[in-house]
Write a protein that binds this DNA or RNA. Structure first.
Ligand SMILES: [Zn+2]
Ligand SMILES: [Zn+2]
Ligand SMILES: [Zn+2]
Ligand SMILES: [Zn+2]
Lengths: 145, 145
DNA sequence: CTCCTTATTGACAATTATTATCATCTATTA
DNA sequence: TAATAGATGATAATAATTGTCAATAAGGAG
């Protein structure tokens, strides 16, 4: 569904700022972006767009599930567009590169949980950490970062 | 291995502050604590302990792998003691309760990755979100939080 | 045990990140 | 096109994190 429908159907307005931020997320599908990343990229398309607006818009997008929060090691909160293509991430501890991982064993885990507790699982997140092929090749498999 | 050895073997000193913070983590095994949580609890045992020291100590503990960072939804960074008992978490979206999940299918995922890429996995994190039995019983399965 | 050396601490200041306020602007609808 | 209410951006206010430095105290030598 397109952004306009998703916004209007909940009583929110379609604004250029929201469209720009949405486009930034769309163009970086699979690449988690920090708030500052989003702000910089959005400002390229619409100079002057305020950082406050980025905060507000991402809160909204998260509420509407237009964007999903992504947890990686490191301080910042990252965001990604939610295109319904469920996936996870592999983060290189040396260069910080983020690769996509489409595999997910959540059903198996849900089975395990169902047998052992009454917790109802509705979502999850997962990140794998390690070293990307490039860093391994360059002998940076144990480098800092 | 005990804290003293872990510190001294790397040239760090054993201080009461570090011991107190370690004890706080130990007494809350399985329950992720935020920096403020840790600070409050540590201050009960040692009034006056500075927040700066908590920041510094947790950076150190993380480096020494005495503590592990835990990612949950929400802003704060959480920490947990690393007792070698690998586990994950289930977070209730209604009451915020965190339950332990000892199940982990990382080996299966590593197999999948090995077949599909050359990324070398050395660690991972995972959290499941949903509703705890209490909240389900109270009909708060779709409540806010 | 006492004295040195130097890592560590805590108070404070400086930065940085996030949230609140409010006048102005503008998307929507009639 | 005009009216209305939501949204934006500038600014201020808070909160979170990091840096500085004099005072303290842990660990090692004697
Ligand atoms: Zn790499
Ligand atoms: Zn998954
Ligand atoms: Zn609950
Ligand atoms: Zn695991």
């Amino acid at each position: 569904m397109d952004l306009g429908k998703r916004l209007r159907s909940r009583g929110y307005r379609v604004t250029p700022q929201r469209e720009v931020i949405y486009r930034v997320l769309q163009e970086n599908e699979g690449k988690p972006l920090s708030l500052d990343d989003i702000h910089s990229l959005a400002c390229e398309k619409r100079p002057g767009l305020g950082l406050t607006t980025v905060y507000r818009t991402l809160d909204l997008f998260r509420e509407l599930e237009v964007a999903l929060p992504v947890h990686l090691h490191g301080d910042s909160q990252y965001y990604e567009i939610n295109e319904g293509k469920h996936h996870h991430h592999m983060v290189c501890l040396s260069c910080g590169d983020v690769e996509l991982l489409e595999a997910c064993l959540i059903e198996e885990i849900e089975d395990i949980v169902r047998d052992g507790s009454d917790f109802m699982i509705t979502g999850h997140c997962m990140s794998l950490f390690g070293y990307c092929p490039d860093c391994l090749e360059r002998g940076r498999g144990k480098g800092s970062r």
